[in-house]
């Protein structure tokens, strides 16, 4: 197998363009998905069964069907309803829906992981539910939302590659175009894989920094000594990130 760097150097503008579109898709869906996740999480924690039930159905559908099916359903669905949505926006809508399902679960689970006494302790000094949420619950949850939130963000960025299937010119799509022209799959797919890898590693680093800024970087695990450590740890020294 011979490597042909010319494949990459000749088509680099396409890769750059694809990378930019992938970033656009991801940033838009990150913001919109997070915004949509807040009301979904609120519904899923509601005291009223009807609201909780509708949130459950929403989550079960979005998490139960393959993302590629969701992308096409949104794409054809908006077309059938008469609105001619450009493929890019179909992709943003699908990715936003997808992300909202996972972000809302992050919000819900970190908030419900707090001891129930924390809600009572706010109410008992005279705070309303909203004040308790604002002064007691959210400040305590924010830090612990970051690691799972970063994971969801990385998952969403990776999932955006599927949007290539509706011919949105993002990174994977451009890769397939170059591969079609050059028949050099190794060079092409390794290149775009490396670009994705760089993006996701960058997001992960960024998440660490935000978490440290908030000052709640929890150290995981506990010191395990002796014999058991032979089995219970997978790295000799610090865990490799």
């Amino acid at each position: 197998m011979r490597l042909d760097p010319g494949v990459i150097t000749d088509s680099w503008p396409l890769f750059v363009e694809g990378t930019l579109v992938t970033i656009q898709l991801s940033v838009l869906s990150f913001l919109l998905g997070l915004a949509l996740a807040v009301p979904v999480a609120a519904l899923s924690m509601s005291r009223h069964g009807v609201f909780r039930g509708s949130a459950m159905v929403y989550l079960a559908i979005l998490r139960g069907i393959p993302f590629i099916a969701l992308v096409f359903i949104v794409h054809y669905g908006t077309a059938a309803s008469g609105a001619r949505t450009p493929a890019f926006w179909s992709g943003v809508i699908a990715l936003t829906l997808f992300a909202s399902a996972y972000y809302s679960e992050v919000i819900r689970s970190t908030i419900s992981a707090l001891p129930p006494g924390q809600w009572d302790s706010g109410r008992v000094v005279g705070m309303s539910r909203l004040q308790t949420l604002r002064y007691i619950i959210v400040p305590q949850s924010l830090g612990s939302m970051i690691p799972p939130g970063v994971n969801v963000t990385i998952m969403m960025i990776k999932e955006s590659s599927v949007i290539s299937a509706i011919t949105v010119g993002e990174l994977t799509y451009q890769g397939l175009v170059v591969q079609g022209n050059t028949f050099a799959p190794f060079e092409v797919f390794i290149t775009i894989a490396l670009i994705y890898w760089g993006i996701t590693l960058g997001v992960s680093r960024l998440g660490d920094r935000v978490e440290r800024r908030i000052g709640r970087l929890q150290k995981s695990g506990r010191p395990t000594g002796g014999i058991a450590a032979r089995y219970l740890t997978l790295t000799a020294s610090k865990p490799v990130q």
């Binding site: 006494g117 924390q118 302790s121 400040p139 305590q140």
Partner: peptide
């Protein structure tokens, strides 16, 4: 409260 439920943050 029994467990005091102070606000840890």
């Amino acid at each position: 409260f029994q467990d005091f439920s102070l606000w840890p943050h």
